[in-house]
Design a protein around this nucleic acid. Structure first.
Length: 303
RNA sequence: CGCGGGGUAGAGGAGAGGUACCUCGGGAGGCUCAUAACCUCCAGACCCCGGUUCGAUUCCGGGCCCCGCAA
């Protein structure tokens, strides 16, 4: 016997998400008294140098909280045996899940499926809006909650909040901006979930003509074209810094010098508008200050 | 056993079966109006355990640790 819950302030919902960034959202929701009753997340993956099977961060979190977890490989067939079909749901909440939800699934819950997207939609639709806003040098960013529809980041808007990054904090480190937007997004989500279920929100369609898109980053996204013995200045320096900051954490920035790959960990612009690299990890070596790295390449040239 | 690089003074590197070297840093002194410059001197190191050997930090085997790729 399923009973229709009156308590829409605490709706029965499923959370879809996978990486660490989604855990941050879950934490915030928990603090707001919103705990999902089921979590759907990505598969365990081999990780590290020895390829140890590792569960996604969201799964770890869910297990700590004793929330049931479902890790489907595919969602395309109607999953009659899935834990989702066990109950009647009020809402699905999606953030950084990593798979496209099929239409049948989106429409399963009573109040449909909502999605947190860390950009000011319709700007920067796509898989990587946070880092893209850094690369685009766009200090005005924000978070949007939409109703999911069949097209990517295309559904009507339920709530939106602008976030302006101050000039002195620009360009931000990728993970720092992740945090800022995730915090803003999670708070907004915590307000929006009950309000939406109570029928207090009217969805507003996006202005599709103004949509822009971003690409997923891959390992080569972080490649920096520079000569370590002659760092750029001026505009080129700022471009490089932007890339280094945007790629911080994932996928990381690197350049190749004499066939050797060198990770760039941190950099800044000095008073002369010149790029200054601070820390570096050459392939096969330890992380070291850039000055030490320079010493080592100059020395190896002599010999 | 996914692929690969590596562990030598505080840091980054070279090296060799038998005095372990270079650059920076540290200390002392000198030169200098002065200096992060220059000169002189000093302290400080071969990851661990076995094996081969007259002798191993070096060659061989095992272990531990670090790093790049890949995911």
């Amino acid at each position: 016997m399923s009973i229709i819950r009156k308590d829409t302030k605490h709706p029965k919902f499923v959370f879809f998400g996978t990486p660490l960034i989604a855990v941050k959202v879950l934490d915030k929701l928990e603090n707001a008294g919103l705990l999902p009753e089921l979590i759907v997340t990505g598969l365990d993956k081999p990780q590290g140098r020895s390829f140890v099977m590792t569960p996604p961060p969201v799964k770890v979190w869910a297990e700590e909280k004793s929330i049931p977890v479902w890790q489907p490989e595919y969602l395309n067939s109607s999953a009659s045996e899935s834990p989702i079909s066990d109950k009647e749901w009020d809402l699905f909440v999606v953030f950084a899940y990593g798979k496209i939800l099929p239409t049948w699934l989106i429409n399963t819950p009573k109040y449909k499926t909502i999605n947190l997207h860390p950009s000011l939609l319709p700007k920067l639709r796509g898989p990587n809006p946070i880092r893209a806003t850094i690369l685009n040098n766009d200090r005005e960013t924000g978070v949007t909650i939409i109703l999911l529809d069949e097209k990517m980041d295309h559904g009507p808007i339920l709530a939106q909040k602008k976030v302006l990054i101050s000039e002195e904090d620009w360009p931000p480190y990728g993970p720092a901006l992740d945090d800022i937007l995730v915090n803003a997004g999670a708070s907004l989500l915590a307000e929006t979930i009950p309000a939406w279920c109570e029928g207090e929100i009217k969805p507003i369609p996006q202005n599709h003509d103004r949509a822009t898109f971003c690409e997923k980053m891959n390992r080569s996204s972080g490649q920096l074209d520079l000569n370590p013995l002659a760092l750029p200045s001026g505009e080129k320096a700022f471009e490089s810094l932007t890339l280094i900051r945007a790629c911080d954490g994932w996928p990381g920035t690197f350049f190749v010098h004499e066939g050797r790959r060198v990770k760039v960990l941190d950099a800044e612009i000095d008073n002369n508008d010149a790029l200054v690299i601070k820390t570096v990890t050459p392939a096969g070596a330890k992380t070291m200050p850039y000055s030490e790295y320079l010493k080592s390449i100059k020395q190896s040239k002599k010999t």
